[in-house]
Design a protein around this nucleic acid. Sequence first.
DNA 1: AATGAATGAGGCTTCATTCAT
DNA 2: TATGAATGAAGCCTCATTCAT
Lengths: 203, 203, 203, 203
Amino acid sequence: MRIVSAPVRSLRSDAARNRESLLAAADAEFAEHGLEASVADIARRAGVAKGTVFRHFATKEELIAAVVATYVTTLRDTARDLLDAEEPGAALLEFLTVAADQRQQRDITLLMTASAGDSNVARLRDELHAGIGSLVDRARDCGAVRKDITGTDVFLLMCAPVHAVEYSSDPSPDLWRRYLAIIFDGLRAEGAHPLPQPPPTWP
Amino acid sequence: MRIVSAPVRSLRSDAARNRESLLAAADAEFAEHGLEASVADIARRAGVAKGTVFRHFATKEELIAAVVATYVTTLRDTARDLLDAEEPGAALLEFLTVAADQRQQRDITLLMTASAGDSNVARLRDELHAGIGSLVDRARDCGAVRKDITGTDVFLLMCAPVHAVEYSSDPSPDLWRRYLAIIFDGLRAEGAHPLPQPPPTWP
Amino acid sequence: MRIVSAPVRSLRSDAARNRESLLAAADAEFAEHGLEASVADIARRAGVAKGTVFRHFATKEELIAAVVATYVTTLRDTARDLLDAEEPGAALLEFLTVAADQRQQRDITLLMTASAGDSNVARLRDELHAGIGSLVDRARDCGAVRKDITGTDVFLLMCAPVHAVEYSSDPSPDLWRRYLAIIFDGLRAEGAHPLPQPPPTWP
Amino acid sequence: MRIVSAPVRSLRSDAARNRESLLAAADAEFAEHGLEASVADIARRAGVAKGTVFRHFATKEELIAAVVATYVTTLRDTARDLLDAEEPGAALLEFLTVAADQRQQRDITLLMTASAGDSNVARLRDELHAGIGSLVDRARDCGAVRKDITGTDVFLLMCAPVHAVEYSSDPSPDLWRRYLAIIFDGLRAEGAHPLPQPPPTWP
DNA sequence: AATGAATGAGGCTTCATTCAT
DNA sequence: TATGAATGAAGCCTCATTCAT
């Protein structure tokens, strides 16, 4: 067994480092300027030439999808990990907290909408949806949330706390926790009023 | 009164009609394509030349702000009207229903963010905020909503039901009512848990 | 009848002048650099901004097709005019002379290939083909060209004299006449040998 | 003879094989996409990395010239071989047939124009020109072609049959033989009309 | 006051070429 | 020597805005 493998890896690690830089830069630029962030600015921020962006991501769309994929992957993994938690209600709240915290730093709604057509993102989103569904099922079974709530409901409400805060011009960094608490109170069994519409179906 | 005034008036009414056409066209185009809707398309839809857009609105930003202003004005008036309602709790729910219904048809979050710097929009928003504050005060006073909720909270949560629905790929037209009901349940006094963060201050 | 029509026309004449400048500039640039001539260079040569090119021609392809159309139109008209000539053989030779002379100044083979998909160019080409067909029919009927020649043959050979000259590095300006004469000798009835392949059909 | 030579040799033969692969790939790509064929596609088709292309050919121009050289070399050799043929007229026709057949498969006009400045191609072209000159001299001496024709004339007309066919949208594979026959009839002594221009001089 | 032609900056993407490994 | 990642110039096209008519 020789150390020859080291240089081979280093070649790739250069490219991998650039890829990471690009994802980070894209993440930051999209956070600051939305989808209109230019590829040129992303490249500059990543410290690479414009052409390098397209070596890693064939189109801007693909770059957006790659950024989104990192977020959705993290969320999916979080949901899966929490399936082993002892208290289903606390697990669901924890998931929503992590989800909002992540999104607090970056509003990925736009990005997610833009990459709806990406098959990888679609798969990850389905997996995330499934994970949330399981969390909700467990929480519902033990009475931690109201009976008439589905995983899809929670999936759709996941980002609400952050969106609420976005309307504020200069919010305190943890303000979203306030709105998560309010919305979670709305999900609880106690004091629940009948809902006027049936839950949506997952496509 | 001279005859000259006749053509002047007709010109003015022409201009006024153009302005209305432009606002309607801009509203529709922004609804379909978001902020990227082009001035050229808006002009075409309004049936006027591109140059005419800029005679009425010096920049695209100003046009966006004008569209936003129509929405915020309507909401402000709705809030004010509901101050005379007999049941404060029902009045607040009605306001949130109207707000969500209006936004259901047009996602103006983007527009609103884009026109945050417009002084007219800022004024209208402040007035809307004040109206919501009064609605909430009345509802809180009679126990229809929890004690620890402020008008600013409701202002920020106002759009949450619509945003939740936006994540859905093919929502039923009234799905937002489901999420408004859930969130409103979270605002009720009944079954409220303590909130982890203090309410935000209005700038 | 008022002179009001004058200013209206002048508006258009400004645009029309730009359109003509653009066609001339494009013609020249394509002649010098082939299809790789850049839109920016064409705009510069025409003395207009880049954006103006796209106001007149939505895509570069459309511009190419417009240039080609001017040539094909001229040729079609030439063919039609010569249908009234007294001597069919001389008329056909005259047509080929005009065709080669026009192409001597600009090699439009590439352009024509590039704009094969343009419907206007296709129509003009069909009309040109029909005109050449009539010229050839008349010439054949009076024995000026060999019996086994069709209009499509002449259409395809039309550019051969110019192409031959293009291989020469520094040809005299009228050298193409030499090759037209040789090829036309090949089209004559006198001394014709049987042809190994049937004539092509027009699509 | 040392063992070291083995890897060295194998490296060389590898390089030679790569060179051949590249020429074949370039030939095919240029045939399919013209001069715009990308170096990346050529490398991929040859099964080597992009960098390897530039190890063998310093620039894309050089690669084009190398492809052209293979064609011109073949033609030159064909011309030289046919100098020993018994029937000068048939030999000239055979040469033109081979030339057109070769070009039928690949349109190298563009390539040839692009590599006009390459000294190797220039030398080969001169040798080809000389060979054609000898073929024409012999044919002229025995009356197989008209008196006023030179080798340069035939050199320039060599590609005409193929070019004629290129205008056709869907030609039969042997259509060029028809136009070669017509043009060759124009080169014959019988029925020749005086030519309006003197023959070109070879640079 | 309206028109629509012109402007030109800026966006995404391609590609020949260079260079570190 | 081969690789393929990186470069950056250049290309086509869009669009908010200006201006002559």
